[in-house]
Design a protein around this nucleic acid. Structure first.
Lengths: 194, 194
DNA sequence: GTCTATACGCCGATAGAC
DNA sequence: GTCTATCGGCGTATAGAC
């Protein structure tokens, strides 16, 4: 790898990072390329050297974020042996990411593709959801959790922690999320038991 | 009420209705005043006779929607006697509205104030959530549901059905939501039991 | 109350020098 | 690879006739 390639890569990373921050804080449409350029300390022309459009930045960010969630879920589900602890780890990790990597998760959960993509929209964001559904279906077959509709099960697993996280972001909850995680997990787990 | 007042009111209602539809379908920022005017069959000038800005339309729509949800929840909770059936009715009504009054609920759940309001944002959308939390706290005191953190309880009550509704809107679920409602309610109810 | 016509600014995107 | 300068277009909002 040449020196220039490295510098180029660094600039790209910077544009990604600052763009995501601004998209989350101000919203996609309220963020102009001039805003991004200023935040990065470069010019709009420089941005266009790396990306062909503002939309391209957002779409790439979006795909990266989906991938990040996919990896997170996959690793989490492999990290424990017992079903109960796999799910506990998943809930805990979600809550942890919501505080430690807030911007990324906010981008994943709040940014609407509809607002970004103008015409036909081919982005599929249901990957992580489907992975979890597959996992839960398998666990049902093995008899580790209650046999129920797999969509309902996945909705219980994701809906409860995600809602907690969102009301925290909306400042409805003031306290640190950490104190809720045990109780949240127990609620999720209960829905999956006979 | 004079004739002209009536006509004026009708036009306003029309603008509200079409604006909400467009905001939901295309997104707030991808909807121009020209779009709204065309959809209403009037001119942009006419819109400005009734509203002072596009933002004003969105903010008023938003407040109306919050009020709608507040009323819906309040009436629902009074419609039954037993706690179990109050909550069942609530879950069922949410799911029903998601199909029958889709646009309104999509507006309430999907539109981000941050995207609309440019500067300081005073909109408070936590009213319905807080009402449900108060209800659940009272039920705990009466011993009708398990004593637990009230935020966690409210998150369980809202998070599960809302998540189901959202994945339906995202077309992850193909079938009619009606077939899930019993199972969804049972899941919610379980989280609130000892 | 509604129309047409238009002002004006901001934004995305490009051109061309360095 | 980054800059400055600029273009074209669209979107909000206004002015003034009817």
């Amino acid at each position: 790898m040449k020196i220039n390639d490295e510098r180029s890569l660094l600039t790209q990373k910077l544009i990604f990072k600052k763009s995501m921050e601004l998209f989350v804080i101000k919203g996609y449409h309220n963020t102009s390329l001039r805003d991004i350029a200023a935040e990065c300390g470069i010019s709009t022309g420089a941005i266009y050297h790396h990306f062909s459009s503002k939309e391209e930045i957002a779409v790439k960010l979006f795909n990266d974020t989906i991938l990040f969630l996919n990896n997170l879920f996959e690793e989490t589900l492999q990290s424990k042996k017992e079903t109960r602890y796999k799910i506990k780890e998943l809930v805990f990790n979600l809550i942890r990411i919501a505080e430690e990597d807030k911007i990324t998760l906010q981008f994943a959960l709040n940014i609407k593709h509809k607002e970004i993509i103008k015409d036909g929209k081919p982005i599929c964001s249901s990957g992580p959801f489907e992975m979890l559904r597959t996992f839960l279906k398998n666990e049902m077959q093995k008899g580790n959790i209650k046999k129920m509709d797999s969509y309902v099960a996945t909705v219980c697993l994701t809906g409860i922690p995600v809602r907690l996280i969102q009301i925290k972001w909306d400042n409805v909850i003031k306290k640190d999320l950490d104190i809720y995680k045990e109780e949240i997990f127990e609620a999720v787990w209960k829905t999956l038991q006979p």
